[in-house]
Design a binder for these strands. Sequence first.
RNA 1: GCGAGAGUGGCGGAACUGGUAGACGCGCAGGACUUAGGAUCCUGUGUCUUCGGACGUGGGGGUUCGAGUCCCCCCUUUCGCACCA
Length: 826
Amino acid sequence: MTEPITQPPANEAGGYDPAAIEHKWQTRWRERGTNATDLAGGDRPFYALMMFPYPSAEGLHVGNLFAFTGNDIYGRFHRLRGHTVFEPLGYDAFGIHSENYALKLGRHPADLIPKNIANFRRQLERAGLMVDWRYSVSTTDPGYYKWTQWIFLQLLKRGLAYKKKGAVNWCPKDKTVLANEQVVAGACERCGTMVEQRFLEQWFFSITKYAQRLLANLDWIDWSETTKTAQRNWIGRSEGVEIGFEVLASGDGGARASTGDAPRINVFTTRGDTIFGASYLVLAPEHPLVVGLATPAQRAEIDAYRQRAAKQDLVARKVTKEKTGVFTGSYARNPATGQPIPIWIADYVLMEYGTGAIMAVPGHDERDFEFSQVYGLPIPRVVAADGEAPDAPLTAAFTENEGGRLVNSGRLDGMTVEEGKRAAAEWLSGMGAARTVVNYRLHDWCISRQRYWGPPIPVIYCDACGPQAVPESDLPVLLPNIADFTPDDSGISPLARHHEWYLVPCPTCGALSRRETDVSDTFLDSAWYFLRYPSAHRDDVPFDAALTKKWLPVNSYIGGNEHAVLHLLYSRFITMVLHDAGHIDFDEPFTKFRAHGHIVRDGAKMSKTKGNIVNPDDLIDEWGADAFRTYLMFLGPYEDGGDYRDRGISGVKRFLDRLWSSVGNARTDGTPDDAVMRKLHQTIRKVGDDIPRLSYNTAVAAMMEYINVVRAHERVPHRAEIEPLVQLVSPFAPHIAEELWERLGHDGSVMDAGWPEYDPALASEETIEIAVQVNGKTRGKVRVAKDADQAATLAAARADVQIAKFITGEPKKIIFVPGRLINIVV
RNA sequence: GCGAGAGUGGCGGAACUGGUAGACGCGCAGGACUUAGGAUCCUGUGUCUUCGGACGUGGGGGUUCGAGUCCCCCCUUUCGCACCA
């Protein structure tokens, strides 16, 4: 007798109706506060964070939901395992992207953002995310950016924020400066316009002071290796020496440029061992010493070159890589050889790195080699490979470190490169000509933007008192609602057109003063939002001390690797600063970070420009959120992304339909099938092992496999066989899981039902299949008891005629791997 | 150029520390049930085959009883960084 637990679904053939049950459960979750986290209570807090989106007008795309769903599953799984899980989500709504879009429409971003946010929220709720919306934040909310400005003041107070006039990246289209991190191959990462170099006064954060710490902590934080590597490369630590070259009286007939004391030119090199091969110096065109070095005969040419270099956008310099330069007419003394060497200027030397000057070793540096060829300069050899003559001419720069020995290098002769580096540093230091230094590729973070849509930088300029921090009690400095926020080419923010806003009394002396009219970089908004979530309800402090202590650092952070060196580096930096200032007690924000992959379709990453986007609303309408979520997770390894194929979702929907009818048909009489129960416990183990590894695709496959086994055994499964599967599937397909859980007669949410335990004894087979190889080739398989020994297995193999025929003689050797295989060598 | 990954059926992808290659799904083929099927269910599906087998994880070597997995060389490709001295 079969006694169904509930009536089988009406439309059994067509499967279940997702729209109805998803609506029902989303409503019920809201009413019951199922997704609300008790931040103060709960003894096993787990903060499952995902990178917050920028609320675009187009709404969420499939890629966003792929990312969010992966995090949601991780959070739901931890909840089932008994953690109190906090899964907040907010909006990164300031920034050029939002502002440009508003400009395009001729609208105001302050009007557009709330609509976009409402649309995002609608889509996110439809997707069934376990988000606690009470703790949402938007970076554009004055209650939020008040504290963004407060963070700026903390850096200012600690001497980590400063204003400097310098060469900065200027995007002529977006009409603002950009951080180095926002310039990709010489172009604006946002709009693709080639970036120009401008000399402007800008606000910087001294992130370089934290370079060593940002690098060192990478050794212990649990992050995706690809992300850590990207950060290491970006920080770009290199050890070397700074060597001083004394400038000589001119070799140009004594007509030396008019300077008093002979200046020294400091260069940075990682190859101090090649000092004897340094045959000329090169200064960046902007180098301050260039003016003094230019001899009268060379002056005109030098000036022309410098002007060209200054005007030239960084792109031309970086992309063409053609070597050009001009001889200054002056010479310096190589401290090792004592010989005079010419001083050149060339734009392949960058003012921003090292000292802005190099010693050129054309024999052993590709760029110097190329430059020497262009200008016919000598190319001496100071390193030779094993067995190579010391004077063998060089046809290319010899840059190998391994196996080289120093030659033509006086006291360094015969040393390896590494020995030479140490010896040269020691020797030159002893002469007072050098010191060892560490250089970083990382530059200070330029945070000011000549745009409108961002938090105003909280500084007031007073003629009498100088720049003054806005008192913390006066925060926030509200962004005024102005109509004409179009940026112009002046290098000054649109806010500077509004004297009624920027003219304010000096906070110190009261005299009429000017506000800073630049706003801060969007990346400052997002560098601390994860600190704000648990304290989003507090308007008197940036972060509640007790809640912060309890919930931070973030247990798990998931996001795209495109932020490997932007957001993730800035967040670490801001966290360190806040730690050092005593506001928080940890200095790394994300204990664990995993970069998710990207969804591609038709061979390209989904994007509007490629025309291959898929609207999640349509998919949810047609298939339901559960099938959509589960399908996204089934596409491929979460950390690799997946290839979206339009038809694939049908397989997942079929799986959910089968789950639905299996539960609907389940019987309570009789006993469960042994083989099915063993498979069940194996599946519980497998899914529980896979989810923490983010191996969602194999977890889904295991559940599919299980339901296939159930159905192959009995058309009417026992309740005990199918009920735990509802729990297993709940992180992926929460709505159907809730509905089935209820139909199974449970009162509470399946999210509070816990994770089923597997029985290790049941999860292991009683009898197992052992592969039989003869001479390493698989010839068949035999079924034996799970603890069968070698003799028993061999006997079983011989008993199988299909296998026995390959065993043509007495075994010479037998390799037996219990539970795995037996290999008979004859 | 430098750095980090990746190459497995028609397709997306499985395969834990070397141990039954191709799980799971799509697609495809055949069948059942149907007035009908782009629904559902069942069966099959790496290639070749003289039906005994043989060959198969980008290519070529190697280690091993045994290699998708480890080592060496090469090819292709994706993603970072890109004149950083």
